[in-house]
Design a protein around this nucleic acid. Structure first.
Lengths: 150, 150
DNA sequence: TATTGTTATACTCTATAACTATA
DNA sequence: TATAGTTATAGAGTATAACAATA
């Protein structure tokens, strides 16, 4: 067994975060399939809910995706009635996106699905471990520039 | 601010694991670019090092990827001299893969790169938080069927 | 001329399906 | 006939580049 500084490849945080993150993302994508949505659609709903960005370009920067991807994500959500596009009267180039009531409901359902997945994951952890994990991930997320609540 | 059961979308473990995992995976992929390798190449080296699988089909199952992907990963690693393919004398359909000395060195370097990334991440955590995070992720990884030590 | 959004195109990753060799 | 590996093909997801409208 190869060991570097007494640490195996699978013992690194990097491997575990990457691998566990990918599996959880897959499971979440599967849970969203019933709504015919991808995790990034939920991400966009979340951004609008947070109020951190409203124009498509701002959203693209916050989500770290190409502006063209925001177009297709928003197209889908708009066709579902989850969001509305409004031309900014002060600058008619900008599309201001906002959640509709239906969009808020949808985000609530998608959050509930995430919480259900969380519960499955938490089954393998003590409640204090769960709390520590959430706290540590929150710090990492914040330091990586992801939007997280205080 | 929309809150479900007093929890926001970005507060879920699912979101944080998925998002942080993706960012860490991207950073790791970038760190590997100097070797012209992808994280899955390192995964294959790790599988061989672990001894949990040797034939390509066994490796594909353990890594949860298509057998055809193992072919291309192994082609690359073989061309670099990191692994060797040996026909199983008992069943000449099977290719038994094994790490070469160069492959072991490469895995060591890739593990060192992961540890360097870990150190960056750990800068945002107390050492006990780091340990708790690693422990919790290890449990989740094990319960998701990923190979982890201890 | 610079910027926002959109459309058209291309690229990366990976899976599925067809095929070869061996059992 | 069934299985291990390989090759060929196709699809999903996303970025880049070209374009249109507005500033």
């Amino acid at each position: 067994m190869l060991i570097v500084n007494d640490v195996k490849w699978t013992d690194t945080l990097s491997f575990r975060l990457g691998a566990v993150g990918a599996l959880v993302a897959d499971q979440y994508a599967e849970a969203l399939a019933v709504h015919d949505l991808k995790p990034k659609h939920v991400g966009l709903l979340g951004v609008l809910d947070s109020g951190l960005a409203a124009s498509q370009l701002e959203i693209a920067k916050l989500m770290r995706v190409a502006p063209s991807l925001v177009v297709s994500l928003a197209d889908r959500l708009e066709s579902m009635g989850a969001i509305e596009r409004l031309r900014d009267p002060a600058d008619r180039r900008r599309q201001i996106l906002s959640l509709t009531g239906k969009g808020r409901d949808l985000l609530a359902e998608c959050t509930a699905k995430a919480l259900a997945l969380d519960a499955n994951l938490a089954a393998d952890l003590t409640s204090s471990q769960h709390a520590e994990l959430s706290e540590a991930l929150g710090r990492l997320a914040a330091s990586l520039g992801l939007p997280v609540r205080g």
